[in-house]
């Protein structure tokens, strides 16, 4: 199987000196559903901007479907579909006009484009609203239309930037089904970034985690989970601020706990076999007067992989919008 994306030692330094992508290398195979994960500001969107020809890389090499990113950018633009970070549709136009316009940009026209547009409206379930002004669409409808605009020319490679953020569960599962179909039946290679680990776990057959501009882990979801190999024990303390320090001390003294991190509830401890030591933890906490409000444990999840590799739990909702880095960057012609 040949590679759809080949990135080697990619570096991007913004004109203000920020090194957003630091010697990154990875490959995405043809037909793969590739997940690109990382906290806000880790370099995800910058990498996507480089790969979608919006930013010029500082050094390194990158090829898409055998085309060189610098020399053949116009060829690359013909075969990629991009759903950008912002829901970039024109509110003054109708849904149909937006789709037609994107089709024209991809040099499609006539009945071929018309049929494709109808097909897409059916697909994203917006048929009834196709001739309504996009300004009156709900957030979820806009997101679905945005996805449709990226698909208008049946791209070989689809870049998706958090496609289900802000969607209700029904729309989310509809989009998941569609993306799986697109990947399996149409053999579209998909490059997905997401904040939802369960989404990455469900959809992707290869993953890379990026943090502070560097790839910190790569592999299939199963491989990554096996690397972590530890159960996580979530400990919610009643008075987290007061008892945290002594709780950490106790956990360190207990044999079997190999790693502790601070998370939303309070603490998460990692251990080889959680069911065996959980009683010890509760007993020790009890003797020291540390009151637990909840304990739970689970086998390794992608969340844990992520947490261990990046040292922070990913936000389940993108509360903080990353600054529009393009403003500082150089735009390509």
């Amino acid at each position: 199987m040949s590679n759809m994306i080949e990135v080697k030692d990619l570096v991007l330094v913004y004109s203000n000196g920020t090194k957003a992508v630091d010697t990154v290398s990875f490959n995405v195979k043809k037909g793969e559903f590739f997940g690109f994960l990382g906290p806000n500001g880790a370099g995800k969107s910058t990498t996507i901007k480089v790969l979608t020809t919006l930013l010029k890389k500082t050094s390194g090499s990158a090829q898409i479907a055998g085309y060189d990113l610098d020399k053949d950018s116009n060829e690359i633009r013909k075969l990629i579909g991009v759903q950008t970070q912002e829901t970039a549709i024109d509110g003054d136009l109708t849904g149909r006009e937006n789709l037609m316009l994107q089709g024209h940009f991809q040099q499609l026209s006539g009945s071929q484009l018309k049929d494709r547009v109808d097909e897409l409206f059916k697909l994203v379930d917006l048929e009834k609203f196709s001739d309504k002004n996009v300004r009156n669409y709900s957030g979820g409808m806009k997101k679905r239309l945005d996805l449709a605009t990226a698909l208008v020319h049946k791209p070989q490679l689809l870049f998706l930037y958090e496609p289900t953020t802000g969607l209700d569960p029904q729309s989310r599962s509809a989009i998941w089904n569609y993306l799986e179909k697109l990947n399996k039946e149409d053999k579209t290679t998909i490059f997905l970034t997401t904040q939802y680990m369960e989404e990455a776990d469900k959809l992707c057959n290869a993953l890379a985690i990026i943090d502070t501009g560097k790839i910190v882990a790569a592999g299939t979801p199963r491989e990554l989970k096996e690397q972590v190999g530890l159960d996580s024990i979530k400990l919610d303390l009643k008075d987290c601020d007061k008892d945290k320090a002594s709780a950490i001390k106790v956990l360190k003294e207990l044999g079997g706990v190999s790693n502790i991190s601070e998370t939303g509830g309070c603490l998460t401890a990692f251990a080889k076999n959680a069911s065996l030591i959980i009683a010890d933890i509760v007993r020790s906490f009890d003797s020291l007067g540390i009151v637990l409000s909840g304990v739970s444990f689970s086998p390794p999840s992608l969340d844990d992989v992520y947490l261990q590799k990046t040292g922070k739990r990913i936000r389940t909702e993108a509360l903080v919008k990353t600054p529009n880095l393009m403003r500082f960057g150089r735009r390509r012609r």
Binding site: T52, T53, L54, N74, R77, K78, I80, V82, T84, Q85, E86, T87, A88, I89, D90, G91, Q102, F105, Q106, Q107, T149, M326, R331, R332, R333
Partner: peptide, 15 residues
Amino acid sequence: DTGFLQKMLVTPVSR
């Protein structure tokens, strides 16, 4: 601001 320009720029549309 809306990202529409970026969206045009990732297509082969004439700059």
